[in-house]
Design a protein around this nucleic acid. Structure first.
Lengths: 179, 179
DNA sequence: CTTGTTTAAGAACGATCATTCTGATACTAG
DNA sequence: CTAGTATCAGAATGATCGTTCTTAAACAAG
């Protein structure tokens, strides 16, 4: 998963994957049928191991914008711990590299984006219209993907944090105005 | 350029490039030395042909936020005319695919992001502090890159337009508050 | 110990890749 | 017309890719 995450699908060879997994070609093909199959399995694993934990707070009660802040901070410090400029988000990378040529990955990415949007929407105040909540949640999805993209060419975690603060700050001002 | 733009570096073969350019292998190697060289030349061409025209309005006098709106609209309708889900932004794609393994591309991407940031800053009101202008311009860079990333898995131009409207709307509210 | 089955390691295969080489054709100069 | 140069399509090259095959070691059951 980490190999695909940092280098992408094309730039990761089966030889790399054998080394990275500590497994054998035979076992990999036995379990996943193909490189594509392994990639998709890694995609699912990423959702379970990285995305879901980051989204869990949104499903707790009455979170508010602090959950959004926490999400950004969690992902940024994860990137920091993996070394910047970093691997970004596996899903974001897939969006650029794999989705256009692998329909199943495209579907997985869409599901991910919907799930992310739903989570973000939960952090927004109840009194907003469903329509407005959707717009703002979609905005956060775009902002998040932009941030992971930028994280691939940024060496300072604080630079990313500053951008995250701006994003949440803009949202906060919007919500204060409505209130 | 279009071949690299839509499919990326790895997934575009020299055979594809010979067809796409209508040239010959010999000429390509003569003029650009390598696939990398051609890619970098395409990167520069993209900046000149696609990015610069989109940024020109920012360098006209007294533009304001309408220049930001125009920028998003120009890029979205370009994506629409090329077919959605589309190729996104060549620079954005490079950020994910090439920059981490080609230092020169990394430099070119950084230059591009700086240039984009500078342009956005020009559209912001003079009375803002330089610091605040920088933050907001950097935010717009992130938002733009996020939008192009999402455009690779989005089939509706209006979905992109709605997100662009939200982005500019948030910025507008911020500026009104400061005023 | 003997069989049969699963695992390990890596050789082999066919395809494709970027890059270079080969001749033949087209063109320019005088 | 002739000689020299540039341009052409495509074959050759060597490397690497994903995938499969071969062979032998490890292990289980009886």
């Amino acid at each position: 998963m980490h190999a695909f995450w940092s280098a992408g699908f094309e730039a990761t060879s089966m030889a790399d994957l054998v080394v990275a997994t500590g497994s054998t070609r035979q076992s990999i093909y036995g379990d996943f049928s193909s490189k594509q199959g392994l990639y998709r399995a890694c995609f699912e694993l990423y959702r379970k191991r990285v995305v879901e934990p980051a989204l869990a707070p949104f499903y707790a009660d009455a979170t508010g914008l602090s959950a959004v802040t926490a999400y950004f901070e969690a992902q940024i410090s994860l990137a920091e711990s993996m070394g910047l400029p970093g691997p970004g988000c596996l899903v974001g990378n897939a969006m650029t590299e794999r989705a256009p040529i692998d329909a199943e990955v495209m579907t997985l990415v869409e599901e991910h984006n919907t799930r992310l949007e739903t989570a973000f929407a939960k952090a927004l105040p109840e009194q907003l219209s469903a329509e407005r909540k959707r717009e703002l949640a979609q905005f956060l999805v775009v902002a998040a993907q932009g941030l992971w993209a930028v994280s691939r060419v940024t060496s300072s975690a604080d630079a990313l944090r500053s951008r995250a603060v701006t994003i949440v700050g803009l949202l906060e001002r919007e919500l204060n105005h409505d209130a």
